[in-house]
């Protein structure tokens, strides 16, 4: 049975609460500037922005230990930044530079940072969910108590890989947390046109013998509380948890999405519950932050993101020789070349 979170409780101290606000602002600013750079053709390919979903990543990653793991899908900038990736290599990756977090060969959808246990953005929908199960399998195999936190969208629930991976994780009691960011739209297909049931905890919880929670993911504190429960359970060897985080993306699926599937009224309504504004107001009410420190924070973040852009723009492109690097660990010779 799913459990629904209703009221937020104070579960972090002031210091961490302010860090979370800063992270959410950083993600929002990073994405806004990425959109601008995309429109100016500095960023190629696909670019999926995280605006509106910031509390999903910040409230959950914020509860991990440094030696835990996380893995996500292609909308991955927010998770990387929430895990503490410097915006410089993140922005450099978007610009395809050799200083990027994946050496300029992964791009927007394939951010990685091994030393932070950030196991990547992955762009085939649902394909990374078994990888998360494998990481959790390895944690248990080695006898450690690390967990693997796995993010995906509501569209991924319909892939076979999701069901195969959760079945084995449930059966083997693996320390994984499966976290669906349900923004109600898989690309342009509304949830009711892709899922036979609208309560996703029904699909991801009981069938695979794991508790399932549904949480208002505009509320970073509620996200954190539910994640903490899942982490405690995983560390204790009791097995995986399924979390359905109800969220809303403020931008299109990717930069090239005219968004004809929803109305301006829908968007205006959603923006009334902007997760950053909600958190900011709560911290102001608690007296944990004031208007002047807030303004200072915003200014620092603006500077930080501009510095990241400057770093990215001034960084070198990968050289022609990099085409053939990092294909295999063994010395690599192309089977045929000019």
């Amino acid at each position: 049975m799913s459990q629904v979170q209703t009221a937020p409780r104070t579960i972090v101290d002031r210091h961490k609460a302010v860090i979370w606000l800063r992270q959410m602002h950083l993600i929002r600013r990073f994405e806004e500037r990425a959109a601008f750079l995309y429109q100016n053709q500095k960023i190629g390919g696909f670019c999926h922005l995280y605006n509106g979903q910031e509390a999903c990543a910040v409230g959950s990653i914020g509860m991990l230990r440094d030696d835990d793991y996380l893995i996500t899908a292609y909308r991955d900038h927010g998770h990387a930044l929430a895990r503490g990736m410097d915006p410089k290599p993140a922005m450099a990756e978007l610009l395809g530079k050799s200083t990027g977090c994946s050496g300029g060969k992964g791009g927007s959808m394939h951010f990685f940072q091994a030393e932070k246990g950030f196991l990547g953005g992955h762009a085939i929908v649902g394909s990374h969910i078994p990888l998360a199960t494998g990481v959790a399998f390895a944690n248990k195999y080695k006898g450690g108590d690390q967990v693997c936190l796995c993010y995906f969208g509501d569209g991924a629930i319909n892939q076979g890989s999701f069901h195969e991976a959760l079945n084995m994780a449930g059966m083997w009691k693996l320390p994984a947390i499966y976290y669906v960011e349900n923004n109600m739209i898989s690309m342009g297909t509304q949830l009711e046109r892709s899922s036979a049931v609208l309560d996703l905890t029904v699909r991801g919880g009981e069938p695979y013998h794991m508790p399932a929670y549904r949480v208002d993911a505009n509320d970073v504190e509620q996200v954190a509380e539910v994640t903490q429960r899942a982490i405690t359970r995983a560390r204790a060897g009791e097995g995986p948890t399924f979390i359905e985080a109800i969220t809303y993306r403020f931008r299109g699926h990717s930069m090239s999405d005219p968004q004809k599937y929803r109305t301006k009224e829908d968007m205006d309504k959603a923006k009334l519950r902007d997760p950053i504004t909600l958190w900011e107001n709560r911290l102001l009410q608690r007296g944990w932050i004031d208007e002047s420190s807030l303004e200072q924070m915003r200014e620092e973040i603006r500077d930080q993101v501009e510095a990241a852009i400057e770093f990215a723009e001034n960084s070198p492109e990968p050289g022609p020789e990099d085409l053939y690097t990092n294909i295999t660990v063994a010395p690599y010779t192309p089977q045929e070349s000019d």
């Binding site: 793991y69 893995i71 196991l119 394909s127 990374h128 969910i129 078994p130 990888l131 998360a132 199960t133 494998g134 990481v135 959790a136 399998f137 390895a138 944690n139 195999y141 080695k142 693997c148 076979g160 890989s161 195969e164 991976a165 079945n167 084995m168 059966m171």
Partner: peptide, 26 residues
Amino acid sequence: SRRVIDTPISEGGFSGIGIGSAMVGL
């Protein structure tokens, strides 16, 4: 059973589990 593991009939799933575990050292 820790090191020789029967799986359900889920080739995509257990191949992915193998790959994920290899990412972190197995």
